[in-house]
């Protein structure tokens, strides 16, 4: 009942681990697959190893978390060892970040070589200079990045988009024009936390990204808008912690969803609970499949 398709990629369960959460090592990813996730999206990997930003990189706020990890990662060469462990356990989506189409193309190819079932392009991280959102809000650049990634792999290419723009529809169209296979939305909302006692920003990077329940309604709206703008499969992400949150994204137009922050608030077993409760809801309300529910809130 919960099986779904993101384009041509079949998933037994619709919930995936969002990029950046418990997905930097092979053993962590294997553990999340065991706990009921349909797939795990890796930490975003770049060409070279990077320690990311200095601590403080994370804090709780009302309604969620603000983080500025700054894309820490071991680099694509070393990440092969982690992928080798993880892909034996289930479906792994390789998330990559680059500064230009050539880097994205190279990284996407490497992820496919490692056995990723799809590649997710990080066009949306709000706290890394020269990467993520900084390349992901220019439709022309997005188009060339997606096209470059498409040319180097045969697995599906997903574009993870940022809500920190007023031209989300145009960016989604750019993904579609370039032959992208799916859109993932949303990444975190660019945010800031100030410590009044010290009259100073808390995060070492000053700016970070807001995640958790506070962003869910923004994400649901973004998915609804994207569904109206383009005819591509959508993976919904942002503030999902229970079946009701997941159902909102699906009814806005998503065929699958990702969970991040709730892994901290609800624990690694959050997927089991969502899967069970979503199935109960579908039974009581007469939905026979995820496909049946997809976009139900559109007229």
């Amino acid at each position: 009942m919960l099986e779904t398709f993101v384009g041509r990629l079949a998933l037994d369960r619709p919930g995936m681990v969002a990029s950046g959460i418990m997905d930097e090592t092979g053993a962590s990813m294997a553990r999340m697959l065991d706990s009921g996730a349909g797939a795990v999206v890796t930490k975003s990997i770049g060409l070279a190893p990077s320690p990311g930003h200095r601590n403080p990189t994370f804090t709780e706020v009302k309604g969620g978390f603000v983080n500025a990890m700054g894309l820490p990662n071991p680099g694509i060469d070393l990440f092969g060892e982690e992928m080798e462990i993880a892909v034996r356990k289930g479906k792994i989506v390789g998330s990559v970040f680059g500064k230009d189409p050539a880097e994205f193309s190279e990284l996407a190819g490497r992820m496919e070589d490692y056995g990723a079932c799809a590649v997710e392009l990080n066009l949306s991280c709000p706290h890394a200079k020269g990467y993520g959102m900084e390349v992901g809000v220019d439709p022309a650049l997005v188009k060339s990045i997606v096209a470059a990634a498409k040319s180097s792999v045969s697995v599906p290419v997903w574009a993870k988009l940022t809500p920190n723009t007023h031209i989300l529809g145009e960016i989604a169209s750019a993904v579609s024009d370039a032959g992208g296979d799916a859109i993932v939305a949303i990444n975190t909302l660019k945010a800031m936390v100030i410590s009044p006692e010290f009259a100073a920003p808390f995060l070492s990077n000053r700016f970070g990204g807001l995640s958790g329940p506070a962003v869910r309604s923004v994400g649901v709206r973004a998915v609804y808008d994207i569904r109206s703008a383009v005819d591509l499969p959508i993976v919904g992400v942002g503030g999902i912690s229970d079946w009701r949150d997941a159902a909102q994204y699906i009814m806005a137009g998503a065929c699958a969803f990702q969970v991040g922050s709730a892994i901290a608030s609800k624990g690694v077993n959050v997927f089991e609970a969502i899967n069970r409760d979503l199935e109960d809801f579908m039974r009581s309300f007469g939905y026979s499949s995820i496909r049946d529910m997809e976009g139900a809130a559109h007229e």
């Binding site: 418990m22 997905d23 930097e24 090592t25 930490k43 990890m69 991040g260 922050s261 892994i263």
Partner: peptide, 21 residues
């Protein structure tokens, strides 16, 4: 080595177990 401290980022894992959580 820890970053988030709250069980999210996964940087402090030992064989998949989070030291922080």
């Amino acid at each position: 080595h820890m970053k988030c401290g709250a069980g999210l980022c996964g940087c402090c894992v030992i064989d998949g177990q989070r030291v922080c959580k």
